[in-house]
Simulated scan of single mutants.
Amino acid sequence: MKSGSGSPFDDFDEDEEEEEAPEPETESTIDADSQETDSSESSLDDGLPYKYQRENIQDGRNRANLFLRDEAEADIERLIEVMEDEFESEAVYKIDVLEAALIAAAGNPASVSEELREMGYGMK
Rank of each mutant, 00 (worst) to 15 (best):
K2N: 11
G4P: 04
S5Q: 14
G6M: 03
P8Q: 06
P8K: 12
D11P: 05
F12G: 01
D13H: 06
D13C: 07
E14Y: 07
E16R: 06
E17D: 13
E17R: 13
E18Y: 04
E19G: 00
P22I: 06
E23N: 00
E23W: 00
E23V: 04
P24Y: 01
E25N: 01
T26G: 14
S28E: 15
D31P: 02
D33R: 15
Q35D: 13
Q35S: 10
T37H: 04
T37A: 12
S39L: 09
S39H: 02
S40N: 07
S42L: 15
D46K: 13
D46N: 15
P49D: 15
Y50T: 09
E55F: 06
E55C: 05
N56Y: 07
Q58A: 14
D59W: 00
R61Q: 05
R61E: 02
N62M: 09
N65T: 14
F67W: 12
R69A: 13
R69P: 01
D70G: 08
D75N: 09
D75R: 10
E77C: 00
L79H: 06
I80N: 04
I80A: 00
V82P: 02
M83D: 04
F87K: 05
S89I: 06
S89V: 03
E90I: 01
A91I: 09
V92Q: 03
V92G: 05
Y93R: 06
I95W: 00
D96F: 06
V97E: 00
V97C: 03
L98E: 02
E99W: 03
L102A: 15
I103S: 02
I103L: 13
I103Q: 09
A105R: 07
A105L: 13
A106V: 04
A106W: 02
N108L: 03
P109A: 07
A110H: 10
A110I: 08
S113L: 10
S113A: 12
E118A: 11
M119A: 12
G120L: 07
Y121F: 15
Y121I: 05
G122K: 07
G122I: 08
K124V: 03
K124L: 12
K124C: 03
